[in-house]
Simulated scan of single mutants.
Amino acid sequence: MPLLSGAEPFSHAGSSTGVLLCHGFTGSPQSLRPWALELARRGYSVSLPLLPGHGTRWQDLRVTGWQDWYAAVDRELRELTDRCAQVFVCGLSMGGTLALRLAARHGDRIAGVAVVNPAITFPPVRGFLLPVLRRLVATTSGVTGDIRAPGAAPEVGYDRVPLDAADELRRLVRLVRGELPQVTQPLLLMRSAVDHVVPPGDSALVLGSVSSTDVTELVLADSYHVATLDHDAERIFQETDAFITRVIRPATRKTASDGT
């Protein structure tokens, strides 16, 4: 099945510091490509995979599940850790959910986590009805394109959400909520002041549930949900680089003092 224009995965071989970026539900690598390109420009090794069922047509998403999406980023993480000394995981929306699960499950193999508007809940009424509704209705309206900046590049994704896949998302966020206390790595959480897709309480829940002691929260005052394509995109890129640099330096100093 041909890919949508802009949905192609991206990778860059750079330094021994790797960064894995995870895109969101019904979206594609296009929403994170500027972030990935900037990190590559700054010298990092970068991996931005296309999640299964995404980037083609919504019918393809209908036959995938959260295990498929997670397996794709888990595989990319393992490949990055094979060739990089330190790896950071980043994500937007459901990509943030996947990044947090990677951090919870892989521990010291991940040096830090940077997420933008992570999704960690599902609307309760809709979630209660979804197991029944998905047997009666195939799709609902899409959730891509929540961007404030006029004239910004539109987000490449699906204009329909398969309810089977939405139910898989519901299962994923419920699972990851329970795993948040296992996240111990330094965390940079960037959230939009106005987000029409993910409620602000999701970020508060993440911040209140992780076990990380090094936690930074940044409010993106001039962007909606897809902040990586919005007014605050440059700030996201700069803050991510600063976060990675700050986390790496203490580790580097410790290695030097150990004489290894």
Rank of each mutant, 00 (worst) to 15 (best):
residue 61 L to S: 00
residue 169 L to H: 05
residue 7 A to G: 08
residue 74 D to S: 12
residue 157 G to F: 04
residue 121 T to Y: 10
residue 87 V to W: 08
residue 187 L to R: 14
residue 178 G to V: 05
residue 183 V to S: 07
residue 11 S to Q: 14
residue 126 R to A: 10
residue 9 P to T: 02
residue 95 G to I: 03
residue 31 S to R: 00
residue 157 G to L: 06
residue 180 L to V: 09
residue 197 V to Y: 09
residue 85 A to M: 06
residue 36 A to K: 03
residue 201 G to Q: 11
residue 186 P to R: 15
residue 218 L to D: 00
residue 144 T to Y: 00
residue 97 T to L: 04
residue 78 R to G: 07
residue 251 A to I: 11
residue 31 S to L: 10
residue 66 W to E: 13
residue 66 W to G: 02
residue 177 R to P: 05
residue 217 E to T: 07
residue 203 S to M: 03
residue 105 R to F: 02
residue 202 D to T: 09
residue 108 D to Q: 15
residue 60 D to R: 15
residue 112 G to K: 11
residue 86 Q to K: 15
residue 237 F to K: 00
residue 197 V to S: 09
residue 62 R to A: 14
residue 239 E to I: 01
residue 88 F to Y: 15
residue 244 I to W: 08
residue 111 A to S: 14
residue 210 V to H: 06
residue 176 V to W: 05
residue 17 T to S: 07
residue 172 L to V: 01
residue 150 P to E: 14
residue 193 A to S: 13
residue 65 G to N: 15
residue 55 G to T: 03
residue 244 I to H: 06
residue 39 L to P: 01
residue 161 V to S: 02
residue 181 P to L: 10
residue 94 M to A: 04
residue 237 F to D: 01
residue 151 G to E: 01
residue 18 G to H: 05
residue 150 P to V: 06
residue 35 W to T: 07
residue 112 G to Q: 12
residue 244 I to R: 05
residue 38 E to F: 12
residue 96 G to T: 06
residue 7 A to H: 04
residue 58 W to C: 04
residue 231 H to S: 10
residue 85 A to S: 14
residue 1 M to C: 07
residue 115 V to W: 03
residue 11 S to I: 00
residue 223 S to E: 11
residue 185 Q to N: 13
residue 15 S to W: 01
residue 94 M to C: 03
residue 9 P to E: 07
residue 245 T to G: 03
residue 196 H to T: 03
residue 218 L to S: 00
residue 133 L to A: 14
residue 234 E to Q: 14
residue 73 V to Q: 04
residue 172 L to G: 02
residue 191 R to D: 14
residue 12 H to Q: 05
residue 205 L to Y: 11
residue 47 S to P: 00
residue 141 S to A: 14
residue 209 S to I: 08
residue 147 I to N: 07
residue 46 V to G: 01
residue 125 V to S: 08
residue 216 T to L: 09
residue 117 N to F: 04
residue 236 I to R: 03
residue 6 G to Q: 03
residue 29 P to H: 01
residue 178 G to A: 10
residue 192 S to I: 04
residue 131 P to A: 09
residue 195 D to W: 09
residue 223 S to Y: 12
residue 162 P to D: 02
residue 256 A to I: 05
residue 230 D to R: 12
residue 67 Q to N: 09
